[in-house]
């Protein structure tokens, strides 16, 4: 088992790389976390490109934000997004986090930042680039001490500056 594993793994990667290339909205969850999606301990949310297209027609009042600049900042970012997938669970948080970290292919996904908090909560940001632009942002949160395991995949052309500005808007 141990001996054949590297071979199998390479094959797996090759398979994934090929199948990923074939898909337009490739995302890490489809690639690495299939079994989580069907595991009923996880809550799963998917926002399709179609839904994203519909957001433009909605009234920003739905957002229930303190002010319009904030709502604008959100709408601004949303127009660049094409898909959002969220997996969360409050069971086995530390284990799932470890497992998930180990699964992600570091060749394709580059770690942008790891935030380790005092209480053991960890958040990791990974990005996948295409043509020098961020094509997918992956947020992985959990670790010992966290109350929730969260895996979020944002697919679309992303501007990190815009995302970072959002929190500032919200905190105002």
């Amino acid at each position: 088992m141990l001996r054949i594993k590297p071979v199998l793994f390479t094959l797996l990667l090759a398979g994934i790389a090929l199948s990923a290339a074939a898909q337009t909205d490739a995302n890490a969850i489809d690639k690495y976390f299939q079994q989580y999606v069907n595991d009923n301990r996880f809550s799963v949310v998917y926002i399709s490109p179609k839904l994203f297209q519909m957001f433009g027609k909605l009234d920003v009042g739905v957002l229930d934000m303190d002010n319009d600049t904030e709502a604008q900042a959100v709408m601004d970012m949303i127009k660049d997004l094409r898909g959002l997938r969220i997996l969360t669970t409050d069971e086995n948080v530390a284990e799932f986090y470890k497992e998930a970290k180990a699964k992600i292919n570091t060749k394709e996904y580059e770690t942008l930042m790891t935030v380790r908090e005092k209480d053991g909560n960890q958040v990791e940001f990974l990005v996948r680039e295409a043509d020098n632009k961020i094509a997918e942002l992956l947020l992985l949160a959990g670790g010992p001490g966290a109350d929730e395991f969260v895996l979020m995949s944002f697919v679309g052309l992303l501007d990190l500056n815009k995302i970072s500005r959002l929190a500032k808007e919200m905190e105002k």
Binding site: K118, G120, D147
Partner: peptide, 26 residues
């Protein structure tokens, strides 16, 4: 119930009180 499900991981948390307040809030 949520906390109970965390099992022994709970004991590793440094500031359990702040953490419980946070979970309750969320």
């Amino acid at each position: 119930i949520k906390l109970w499900k965390q099992g022994d991981q709970l004991l590793q948390i440094q500031n359990l009180e702040a953490w419980c307040v946070r979970v309750t809030k969320n």
